[in-house]
């Protein structure tokens, strides 16, 4: 095309430079300039912070995090109970010592793994992570075990699961008394 970029030299002609008198005037002005810019910068910063804060609402309309799932006797030893998977996003597993609750969120990228009974493992369909019945990861890209949720008994003997409190194995939290319900 016929257009040419403007030569650099043309941008800085001698007329653009300030005369000595003008730069002296500017010198006296400089402290006001600093004040002005600091005020402008902090106002802009505050406004940006407000925008960021605006993205986080104070109230969330999401299902309750704490709920009852029935009596301990409702769960058979050695079975991965999938009844609460769809609605609550948990697996309830009872072994010979007690009951624990696993999150159905894969620790890799948050897909929902499937319980493969014949192979005795949780297998995530998205990237092939595999977890043992305990929740420990052993294959695929998952970086850490599935999370366990708080599990306690209510006064009437029902089990309460609280999803707002989670226990992570790699932080040594599975030994916490509320991560495991002794039966």
């Amino acid at each position: 095309m016929s257009e040419k970029p403007i030569p650099r030299a043309a941008l800085n002609t001698p007329q653009d430079e300030l005369s000595p008198a003008e730069s002296v005037k500017r010198k006296g002005f400089i402290s006001w300039l600093v004040v002005g810019w600091v005020a402008f910068a902090s106002a802009t910063g505050t406004f940006l912070a407000m925008i960021v804060r605006f993205l986080f609402p104070n109230v969330l309309f999401e299902p309750p995090q704490s709920f009852k799932i029935g009596f301990p006797d409702d769960f058979q030893i050695g079975v991965v109970d999938e009844r609460f998977k769809a609605l609550r996003g948990i697996w309830v597993i009872r072994d010979s010592e007690g009951i624990y609750v696993l999150s159905t969120v894969c620790t890799h990228l948050g897909c929902t793994p499937n319980w493969l009974r014949t192979e005795g493992k949780f297998k995530c369909p998205c990237h092939g992570s595999g977890f043992r019945k305990s929740g420990i990861n052993f294959e695929g890209p998952a970086p850490r075990p599935l999370e366990r949720y708080r599990i306690v008994l209510a006064e009437n003997g029902q089990i309460i699961v609280d999803k707002s409190i989670k226990f992570q194995q790699e932080k040594g939290q599975w030994s916490h008394p509320e991560a495991f319900l002794k039966v």
Binding site: L55, F56, L60, F61, E62, G110
Partner: peptide, 18 residues
Amino acid sequence: MSSDVRFALLGGRFVGEG
């Protein structure tokens, strides 16, 4: 979970209404 960059994107803790 409710104050990170993912929350800002999703407007919630999981992919839902928000």
